[in-house]
Design a protein around this nucleic acid. Structure first.
Lengths: 344, 344
DNA sequence: ATGAAAGCGCTAACAT
DNA sequence: ATGTTAGCGCTTTCAT
């Protein structure tokens, strides 16, 4: 059995208080005794029992990481959808949590809050929220601190922090880039417009169309995003009398689907059709042609979100709070029409 | 503040023992009092404090989920590599854990065990092990139960369970399929042969070559697997005097890299070159041509692994234990040479 | 059928 | 500088 604090105290011939002091660095302990205690700790391979510590402190140093569910109602829920973005946010968040001596619990976004209560969680990270999730309701009786990367129904409460990109700004940047490259009729293919970031995309796209006097073409696909669904959608809008000459897709798989559809139809990308993904991913680099995308800096999102949450938990910061992480349009072959390869 | 067991006892006018009995279903409680207690619990929205329970029970109902690290030495470690397989194992494992009222902690595979101790973990799942990870050492002083999906240095201890596919069998099946399709010189491109499953692939491949009187061509690439590295490797071996006419790749990204290389060189797949991925993934379906792959049934791996671990933890099963999950070759266009599309 | 009390391993206020 | 002690919220043995 593992040694406990009494074993250490006995071996070092001190009280358990002293052992506790040595371990935590609080209180004053003579360096001689400190040495003795340290030796005892090492000898016994002592580690404080985490459950006892948590019971006393009423803190668990545990954060829940949730990705707002794609499939609202199903038994076997998908914790983590197959996307680079999520993986990178998660990896970064986890590293940061570990660094701060916190633990990340990956929870399905549709576990009910009574279950979440049972896990003894200090705070919650919610990625890609719709904003109307139950947990955001102010009257939700458990009130963990929450950090999300998108808008919520109620941003004003002292329980919520936001770390987001400026999706509207980069969407505009993207549309300007397309115009510069000579594309005149951009369309938008997106999943569920309920999500915070897809709404941003659509809003900015519509504003742009109004300003430019364009008729907006928006296709909203059911989640989760699949290449197949995007390809079908693309084929449909490309068959119009006045087809779009560029497509902005809200996710990597949608962009890839569009690419396949275009190629199937014998359209040249970027010459006949420009393609942009609103979320960058490693697969877009190796597609042929490589696909222009918005880099959202998921690592930074993950790190800042964890930081914001922990700071608030440790009373070093106050909620509500909002941070914007810079994003960046990464121009690749799929939209480089003016000097496309092999066109001199 | 949340109500505790005393609050409930007071409200129901019973002792805390009775409340505890009602909650756990142990002991005998008159149905009248039971009702009273239940009402009090509902009124106060009472949930037993999990830290107190864990302190008493010395169990945490928490499992660590680790993917054996790709990058042995780096600060910012990748928890979950970008692969369908891992994601599906994880999602399935997590659902199963939740169903059994356990919690999954995603941990970097290179946290040292003292840190793992601190998390109060009951058992560990290790995916794609090399087998020589520190944690497998019998003298490792903490002795959680471990379940992995691959061979370990020491399978004999009572701490280890294995849930694996029969990689050697499906590798042989794959090679037989290639031969049937008329491929005569299969090559193997793989990452780190240290991993349990890559070693299986390579061993079976070499046995096959010996039996068939073929000169084996094995390329071992550094981890993590990238399309770029695979493409380079493929170009190199395809430039040989006697190039392979089929390539078996140990991961989805390697297969895709090979496909790109082949297409760059003007080779027709499957006509000039057959391609197989030893791990199936959704992207292989949408590649053009679609790529033949081995379906390892990651969902079942995840579920069985969690089940095995929990059963052992709850003394319903004994270690060591081993289970084989059926895998299946999924033949697609990339190896259908005999009646390839457009060849009548 | 119900309750009193000990104890899980620790922290922190309060002596000394 | 070090020790005593009272909790933290629960489970469980043992009385009644």
């Amino acid at each position: 059995m593992a040694a406990n604090i009494h074993d250490v105290a006995k071996l070092a011939d001190v009280s358990i208080t002293t052992v506790s002091h040595v371990m935590s660095g609080r209180g004053r302990v003579a360096s001689a005794t400190k040495e003795r205690v340290l030796t005892a700790i090492a000898d016994l391979n002592y580690q404080a029992n985490i459950h006892a510590q948590r019971l006393v402190s009423q803190k668990s140093r545990t954060l829940a990481f949730q990705i707002a569910s794609f499939t609202q109602n199903s038994n076997s829920t998908t914790l983590i959808p197959n996307s680079n973005y999520f993986l990178e946010v998660l990896n970064a968040a986890s590293n940061e949590a570990t660094r701060r001596e916190y633990v990340l619990l990956i929870l399905s976004a549709d576990v009910d809050s009574s279950l979440m209560d049972r896990y003894g969680i200090d705070g919650v990270l919610i990625i890609d929220p719709r904003g109307d999730e139950k947990i955001f309701q102010t009257d939700s009786h458990s009130d963990w601190l929450i950090v999300t990367n998108g808008r919520t129904v109620n941003e004003l409460t002292s329980r919520i922090g936001i770390v987001d990109n400026d999706h509207r700004r980069t969407t505009r940047e993207t549309l300007m880039h397309l115009r510069e490259e000579g594309y005149e009729r951009p369309a938008l293919i997106t999943t569920d417009l309920g999500r915070s970031y897809t709404r941003d995309l659509a809003d900015e796209y519509q504003d742009w169309c109004k300003e430019e006097g364009l008729a907006p073409i928006i296709v909203e696909l059911p989640e989760p995003p699949t290449q197949q669904a995007a390809a079908d959608a693309a084929r449909k809008i490309l068959a119009r009398r006045l087809p779009p000459d560029a497509i902005l897709a809200s996710a990597e798989d949608l962009a890839l689907g569009v690419l396949h559809a275009a190629q199937d139809q014998g359209l040249s990308v970027p010459k006949d059709l420009g393609i942009v993904s609103a979320v960058d991913s490693s697969v877009l680099l190796v597609a042929t042609p490589s696909i222009t995308a918005v880099y959202l800096d998921p690592e930074t999102i993950g790190i800042r979100a964890v930081d914001m949450l922990i700071s608030a938990l440790e009373d070093q910061a106050e909620f509500p709070q909002k941070a914007i992480v810079p994003s960046e349009l990464r121009i690749r072959d799929s939209t480089m029409r003016r000097n496309a390869r092999g066109e001199t």
